[in-house]
């Protein structure tokens, strides 16, 4: 297990973070426009001073190395556009909101998707299967930014069950979570059904049945571990989709998350704010991918041993 973790961290996570940082740094620096180009015209001299203050007069590789040096020491740097504010200050309220929204939606997607897929597989080619897969198909075709307005119109405005704006009370979280998570619940249901169908056809399931196990135990105790492996593999990409997908849901429900911060920062060329957001996002994603990998190894002893013996 430790070996898998080590492998994941040093051979995959660090190179990925490196490429991510270099790529986004280059993107922002090479883009036309400057963070200091505000509405009032500034003299070339002021611009030069500003550039010098933040070290932007150096060659790009030097700038990059300096930034990375600060990052390693935990210094995210100052905001270039909002004077006197650090990147950390600007992110510290928004990032937890986005992560919380993404995480809630993930929990929702898993806890709806897996039972649905398993139910469909157990009732293969019967009405329960058709019903679940019909629902999943519809779910796959309604992205969060279509579902969100529909839900907020019906459950928020027409029926008044849930608030349609904000992120204060727990009840505020219901509609955004469902809007963001439903399409992933649908994907997961389809994946879980496929995995379970394959697993339920295997010989060892016949063995389990021949032992006199109840169908419930055959499904949940024996088949599930193998059957949900496609779902676990999907967790990494799903986490990525949920975190960035949160941006639109945030804008629909007026949630103060990272979407606004990142788009705003990139448009204004606020180099350090962009870098800080991207790096934090990247780290969260890598964390999720690693968790998915470890889960997969835990679920499948063959993978675990294979990797450890390497």
């Amino acid at each position: 297990m430790l070996r898998t973790l080590f492998h994941r961290l040093f051979l995959q996570a660090l190179p990925t973070l490196f490429v991510l940082s270099a790529l986004s740094f280059l993107l922002v620096r090479l883009a036309p426009g400057s963070p200091f180009a505000s509405e009032k015209e500034q003299s070339q001299q002021t611009l030069d001073t500003l550039n010098a203050t933040y070290g932007l007069d150096q060659p790009i590789p030097v700038q990059y190395l300096r930034y990375m040096g600060g990052l390693v020491r935990g210094d995210l740097g100052p905001s270039l556009v909002k004077p006197g504010r650090t990147v950390f200050e600007l992110i510290q309220t928004a990032l937890p909101v986005s992560i919380q929204l993404g995480f809630l939606a993930l929990i929702f997607a898993i806890s709806v998707g897996i039972p649905m897929g398993v139910f469909a597989a157990v009732n293969h080619n019967r009405w329960g299967d058709y019903l679940c897969m019909g629902l999943a198909l519809i779910g796959v075709c309604i992205p969060g930014f279509v579902l969100g307005p529909l839900l907020s119109l019906q459950f928020g405005l027409n029926w008044g069950w849930f608030p349609v704006i904000g992120w204060e009370e727990p009840i505020d979280r219901v509609l955004p979570t469902i809007s963001l998570g439903s399409i992933y619940a649908a994907y997961i249901a389809r994946l879980a059904r496929g995995g379970m169908l394959e697993e339920l056809g295997k010989d060892y399931i016949r063995t389990a049945r021949s032992k006199g196990l109840s169908e419930w135990k055959v499904v949940w105790k024996h088949a599930l571990r193998g059957g949900i492996q496609p779902v676990i593999t999907f967790l990494g990409p799903a986490a990525a989709g949920l975190l960035t997908g949160a941006f639109v849901v945030e804008s629909i429900f007026e949630i103060p998350g990272m979407g606004e911060v990142i788009v705003g920062a990139a448009t204004e060329r606020d180099l350090f704010l962009v870098m800080g957001s991207v790096m934090l996002f990247g780290s969260v994603l890598i964390l999720f991918n690693t968790i998915a990998d470890l889960l997969l190894a835990w679920l499948n002893p063959r993978i675990r041993l294979h990797k450890e013996s390497k």
């Binding site: 190179p15 990925t16 986004s24």
Partner: peptide, 20 residues
């Protein structure tokens, strides 16, 4: 490909289209 696969690509696309 493995390394690129780990990137939050949607995020990079967002950067790309909001910068240029």
């Amino acid at each position: 490909v493995d390394v690129l696969y780990g990137l939050p690509f949607t995020l990079l696309v967002i950067l790309l289209v909001s910068i240029f």
